[in-house]
């Protein structure tokens, strides 16, 4: 699984890096960013789904099996 953030949609709500700090971080201004290349280790897939489900802008894309 891989995660991506659509920067055009992100409004800086900060839910992704709160819920899945291993996968997302914040930039200097507080907007979400993907850490590393966005590859999700199997044990963090649930966190990735929760982060995506909690994004009010639906700005997080999960690519299954990638």
């Amino acid at each position: 699984m891989k995660v991506q953030i659509d920067a055009g949609r992100c409004q800086g709500h900060g839910r992704c890096y709160d819920l899945a700090p291993g996968l997302f971080g914040d930039d200097d201004e507080g907007f979400g960013k993907v850490l590393g290349d966005g590859a999700v280790p199997p044990e963090e897939e649930q966190e990735a789904r929760r982060a995506a489900a909690n994004c009010p802008e639906r700005a997080i894309r999960l690519a299954e099996g990638a």
Binding site: Q11, G12, G14, D26, D27, D28, E29, G30, F31
Partner: peptide
Amino acid sequence: HREQRRLLVPPFHGRRL
């Protein structure tokens, strides 16, 4: 609301926090 709220993100997140 969306536009104004976005302006208030940086002061309470990121390095400023």
